[in-house]
């Protein structure tokens, strides 16, 4: 403090015009970049639709329920039904595996079964599952998982060719599990501690409290996490491409090869030409719409939870 020494008057009391101008410019620039994100989203949707237009005009909605995919010139026919089927089937199957495992993991990590330090390490390891590149899972699937599955099925005398819906779904479930765990754990941790105390105070057991109070109270966050995982599973490309077999057929057996929209795109774009590009863009547009619906639902559900306890 400079008590006693009179401070000199500031040279200028009001800010200069340039400074005000700079302030406005800065905010304007920042806002432009923020709006750019929205523009980018719209651009992605529009560009894919525009480039798909020739195929949309040619095949209309029947594209969705035809199963021919023939890029050979002169005999072109495009239908995306097997890939939509494969996308939905692998996603559903991977959710079936990952939801119980992911939720169980989240519960284990949100309760005090083990000391906090070990829990922190486990949380990190589960997060690491999500960080390993998709293509590495694919490589591992080809050289480790598929031979292991072959051996397993061989024990029971079941013939298993290798790349299949099952192999792809198994690896997918590993990749989406950390999403389910992370978001479920967050929504369980966000619950007020009074809920837990209230339940214990009434003589509830730990798991009674978890099933009857904590999970119901955190359900919108958990469901939101599952939806995000579903979106991820539908769009996941590399590991699936390397393991699903890329056969444009609809097979009722999980041990048979299949295809997904994302792996169709990964396989064919680099060599596609003419109407095939449009057909691929059409398929991409369907994938965009599918993931968009799932992600908007997820966003809406997660927001609903935040509103409740804030």
């Amino acid at each position: 403090m400079t008590v006693g020494i009179p401070s000199p008057p500031p040279s200028s009391r009001s800010r200069s015009a340039t400074e005000k101008e700079l302030d406005r410019l800065f905010e304007g620039t920042a806002l432009t970049f923020a709006l750019f994100i929205l523009l980018l989203l719209v651009a992605i949707g529009l560009l894919v639709l525009v480039q798909a237009w020739p195929a949309v005009k040619e095949y209309g909605l029947s594209f969705l329920w035809t199963s021919a995919w023939n890029p050979v010139e002169g005999r072109q026919a495009f239908g995306v039904l097997p890939m939509v089927y494969g996308t939905l089937l692998t996603s559903a199957l991977s959710l079936l595996i990952a939801v119980p495992l992911g939720l169980g993991t989240a519960l284990f990590l949100s309760e005090n079964f083990i000391p906090l330090k070990i829990r922190t390490v486990l949380v990190f390891l589960v997060e690491l599952l999500a960080a390993i590149p998709s293509v590495v899972y694919g490589l591992w699937g080809i050289f480790v998982l598929i031979p292991a599955l072959k051996w397993c099925f061989g024990l029971f005398g079941v013939s298993f060719t290798g790349p299949s819906i099952l192999a792809a779904s198994l690896v997918l479930s590993v990749m989406i599990l950390p999403i389910i765990t992370a978001i479920s754990r967050d929504s369980l941790a966000a619950l007020p501690p009074e809920l837990r105390q209230g339940s214990y105070g009434l003589g509830a057991t730990r798991w009674g409290t978890i099933f009857r109070v904590l999970i119901p109270a955190a359900i919108s966050g958990i469901v939101g996490g599952v939806m995000l995982a579903l979106g991820r599973a539908m769009g996941e490309t590399m590991a699936v491409t390397m393991l699903v077999g890329n056969a444009n057929t609809i097979s009722s057996s999980l041990l048979q090869p299949g295809n997904t929209i994302a792996s169709l795109l990964a396989n064919q774009f680099a060599e596609a030409k003419g109407i095939q590009v449009a057909a691929l863009m059409y398929a991409a547009f369907i994938l965009v719409i599918l993931t968009l619906i799932v992600n908007i639902l997820a966003d809406w559900i997660v927001r609903k939870l935040q509103a409740k306890y804030d």
Binding site: A34, L35, I37, L38, L40, L41, A43, I44, L47, V48, Q51, S134, L228, G231, R232, M234, G235, E236, T237, A262, L265, A266, F269, L280, M281, A284, L287, V288, T291, L292, V294, N295, I296, A298, D299
Partner: peptide
Amino acid sequence: WVRFGVNILAGVPSIISGVFIYGL
């Protein structure tokens, strides 16, 4: 809206970003 956009962009499958740049 921007936060919503960021969430949706995070959910866009990686292959779609490839498709977008392929077209662009």
